[in-house]
Design a protein around this nucleic acid. Sequence first.
DNA 1: CTCCAGGCTTTAG
DNA 2: CTAAAGCATGGA
Length: 273
Amino acid sequence: MKFDYDSTYFVPADVLECGQVFRFERFEEGYRVFSADKDCYIHTEGCRTVVESEHPDYFYEYFDLARDYSEIIETAKSFGVPALTLACQKAAGLRLLNQNREEMIYSFIISQNNNIPRIKGIISRICEGLGQKMNSPRGDFYAFPSSSELAAKEPEYYKALGAGYRDEYICQTSRRIAREGIAELESMDSEQLRRALLTYKGVGPKVADCICLFGFGKRDAFPVDTWIEKLYHEDFKGTLTDRKKINAYFTSLFGQFSGYVQQYLFYAKRANL
DNA sequence: CTCCAGGCTTTAG
DNA sequence: CTAAAGCATGGA
């Protein structure tokens, strides 16, 4: 099964290499993408980007294809910030993904004080070790483990996979979610959700913002990491040093578009576009 | 060798 | 309340 979509605002490299997702493989022509227990293959043919999967509805939502990104881009440019306008031009094919919530919680706990290649490796080894083996016409793969599957292991297991000191965070949070579930989180507004996420072990302000943004569709979140901090000083000529205040600066400036803006800026800066 | 990477928890003031 | 030490790992 496959469907296609205008490639102007849907460029696989922009969507996947911008740092919002850690489970994908790059091939000559396109990418294979994994989310929870599903997979797809995407590539661009001329002015269309093609998605191949047995779960078209899931990936239509995953890639946020119901949303008009020409409007997002126009709004972003209308703020009149040179660095942002430039980022929008260079990363016009970027879209914010709607990813699996629990997968986002563990992925971004692992991401703290870490770099993207190593984050991808750790997550990949966790899936291979604990995830359900899945069949796909594109080849077998391993699902992202459930919270109870994660909770069954001791910290030493995650340490051995290279998770470092985050081993305890994975254990404690997975055991709590295996016990409680996350149903309560789903009906919360952005502020409630952020506060709730901060009560999980290993989740601080930045990780909570990433989970809000990529897992719960809270587009008013603006995660501040080392790249954003760098960009804030170099491109916005900011003088604040407290990340909480830098976050307040950006969210008050960009409001409901904070999350989109953050991704355009982060990607352009980190990938040196 | 030191510094850095999508920072958080714990402890001290 | 804010500030700083401590924390695993691997690549530059």
